[in-house]
Computed example of a mutant assay.
Amino acid sequence: MTVDDVARTVAFSSAREWDAGRSAGSLVVAWQHPTSRLISAVGLLQHGDESGYTFRYLQRAAAVPDFQPFLSFPELGRAYRSDTLFPLFSQRIMSPRRPDFSQFLRQLDLDENATPWEQLARSEGRSSGDTVQVFPVPVVAPDGSASCRFLVHGVRHVGEGRLPELAMGAPLTLRPDPGNPVNPSAQLICSDEGEPLGYVPDLLLEHVDALSRSGRPMKLTVEHVNGVEAPPHLRLLVRLDGHGPAGYQPMSGPAWAVATT
């Protein structure tokens, strides 16, 4: 069973499932190696309208160097279920009681009605010094079109000073970075003038490659820019639009199979 197979069992029949950047009920859980900084997909977190929450490890998690099962999910082959969001992930959602909660939603470019699940998906559940993050499984519509929003990674190290010059809707470009010491498959996100701004998240590289191989136009644009008051990982939100090859489903196939006992 793959990520795509499991995702199809989640009942999301509303039109919101196809809205760019909205959660489709499945988040890939990733772990970042504390030394190499390489990000690896290790699990799948799902949320259904009626079925609560489910966490499963991916089969590939067992081969990730130095990765150990999370304390709250000690068995690699077990499916964990809960009516409420597991603490490992709920602690990554800001409490609405905090005085800066509305500001946080604005930084994520979400409205006041955004659900905790949508906040988790958009923010990637990232926190300073942490090794865990989540990423929404991109959704491809029945006509093959695909659209997603994501936060640009590595802004602090690459292009933070150039962000104030960006306008909403401004076109962006991609540039391979084969000399990247962490991931030779890395893709730089650059301004229309070619100035580096940051990186495509590692977990999205496979999706970007699939869209580029479709032979149809792919468009990357600025969606939202935050000021220096925002954490570096929230500074730049972009939108990727394109089409997948015939029959394409993101994060599917044997490499994305979930572990079972």
Rank of each mutant, 00 (worst) to 15 (best):
H207S: 01
L120E: 03
D192W: 10
M1Y: 12
W18M: 14
L151K: 07
P178T: 14
R37F: 03
S13H: 14
L110M: 00
G247C: 08
A15K: 09
A79W: 01
N226S: 06
Q249D: 06
S23P: 13
L105Q: 11
F135A: 13
L120D: 02
R98W: 12
H243S: 11
I39N: 08
V64T: 09
G194T: 04
L44M: 05
H33Q: 14
L204A: 10
F55H: 05
V152C: 13
S214V: 00
A41D: 11
P142I: 01
R175E: 14
L174W: 05
V132E: 04
L27H: 02
L236N: 09
V208F: 12
S214L: 07
T115Y: 01
Q103R: 13
D19K: 09
G247Q: 04
D5H: 11
P181M: 05
R92K: 15
F86K: 07
P196L: 13
S51Q: 12
R156G: 15
L163H: 00
Q133Y: 01
A257D: 13
Q103C: 00
G227Q: 09
E17I: 14
E17Q: 15
R92H: 12
F12D: 12
P176Y: 06
A230K: 04
A170V: 03
S40L: 02
H47Q: 13
A114T: 04
A114P: 05
H33E: 14
T9I: 07
Q187M: 08
M218P: 02
S26L: 12
Q68G: 12
T84D: 02
L220F: 11
F89N: 00
D202N: 05
V228S: 12
G159V: 02
F101R: 13
V64K: 03
F12H: 07
Y57Q: 11
A246I: 04
W117S: 03
L108R: 13
V42T: 05
D241M: 13
Q68D: 13
G159M: 09
Y199P: 01
Q119R: 04
L234A: 02
A79H: 00
L205I: 15
D241L: 15
A61K: 05
P138Q: 09
L211K: 12
Q91S: 07
M1A: 15
S82I: 00
R106D: 11
E160V: 06
V139D: 08
P201R: 04
H243Y: 14
F55Q: 04
R156E: 15
F101V: 00
V10K: 05
R8G: 03
G215I: 10
R175D: 08
S90R: 14
A11M: 00
R106H: 09
D209C: 08
L163G: 01
L188I: 06
L105F: 10
H243T: 03
S212A: 15
S191Q: 09
F70V: 14
L105T: 06
E223H: 08
E193W: 05
Y80G: 08
A41L: 02
L234R: 01
G77H: 07
P201N: 09
